[in-house]
Design a protein around this nucleic acid. Structure first.
Lengths: 197, 197
DNA sequence: ATTACTATTAGTACCAAGTCATAATTACGG
DNA sequence: CCGTAATTATGACTTGGTACTAATAGTAAT
């Protein structure tokens, strides 16, 4: 099929392609890779080692767990938009999100509001120490435009519960200490603070 | 850990629980299941057969490939979220969004708030007859949970401008005529109210 | 009690897709 | 031609299974 022209690639080149190939189609076995590059399985395995690419099953697992992370029951970190850099359940959390091309309007390079919201909202969910946390209500303000290339730091802190049992979480987002977004999230939670299955 | 009380469950009951358990945590091995239910591995395997539940690796694979298929670099937060079915600039707009797997929390199949927000927010942006429209402020309420498989219809109508020159857009989202989300968006615009591109 | 049947457990051989370690072979540059 | 790097081969072992066979325990019916 997509044979490699019988030209035996030099090692580095092959490894580059190998990496790409696996990134694109992580479900490929060493055997198939060996055929594809016309080398032995062992060579592929050496390559994987040198590139520290895990084996098929681990790759599949990691792809799968992105969607269905088992640790979600404890901490939905995988589901968070942005990257969590600090987290103390039911107290506070911080995440960062680098605004890249896919977050902005193509015309003016300004970040689209829903990404800032998503970052803040998912942080509010993550900070809640509960399996089921949902946003019931929120008030937001976008105080400054965020441009492509900027790094948004969202800081959440849990204020406590209101009369209706909703947990109030404040999230403020900054770019270089300048506030770009502020929001209050009223979170619904199962309130069964612990018991698992 | 979460042993099953040494009470040996009847077969049917065990199989029910088995099914649930696997649905919830598909990464569990037969061995772990055997321990959990205090039966032998073989029993678990018989159970799986009778329930036609595939083995661990197949389960993982299917979870992974599901995700992979949907992830063909078509991220949910990209263009206009949802599909616009009606639009009269500076007046009203309607969009629909079918809630699928990628919109929900894996644990409970409830749609994540930021998707509803994204749909509403991008609709609010779209309805503004201006090249540059940004959300300055908004107030939202999530009035009902939305589950996977449901179709969310978001309806936006432009109320007008407030004293600060922000355009006020109301967006209400429904599933089967039941309101699931309501929001007011205060939109910043360049104010050059005119033709489009 | 004997039979019948279901449920459960045990044990074997086998498989895929690996790891790990060791050795042999080939390729290539100086 | 020699030395080193790259590649290939080989074998033992691992996980998490399938497929199949056989044995055992428990219960109900006759």
């Amino acid at each position: 099929m997509d044979g490699v022209k019988s030209l035996k690639l030099p090692k580095v080149k092959r490894q580059e392609l190998l990496k790409e190939t696996i990134e694109q189609t992580p479900f490929i076995t060493d055997e198939e890779l060996a055929k594809k590059f016309s080398v032995s399985i062992q060579t592929i395995r050496l390559d994987r080692m040198e590139l520290s690419i895990p084996e098929l099953r681990e790759r599949i697992k990691s792809v799968a767990s992105h969607q269905w992370n088992e640790t979600v029951r404890a901490l939905p970190l995988e589901d968070v938009i942005g990257e969590i850099v600090d987290l103390e359940l039911d107290k506070r959390a911080i995440s960062i999100l680098d605004i890249s091309q896919e977050h902005v309007f193509s015309r003016n390079n300004i970040a689209r509001g829903h990404h800032l919201f998503a970052q803040a909202n998912s942080l509010a969910v993550a900070v809640i120490n509960d399996e089921l946390a949902l946003t019931a209500k929120s008030e937001l303000k976008f105080t400054r435009q965020v441009k492509q290339g900027e790094r948004v730091v969202a800081k959440a802190f849990v204020e406590g519960d209101n009369d209706k049992g909703l947990t109030i979480v404040h999230v403020d987002s900054f770019v270089d200490n300048e506030k770009v977004f502020t929001g209050v999230f009223y979170m619904y939670r199962t309130a069964e603070e612990k018991g698992e299955s």
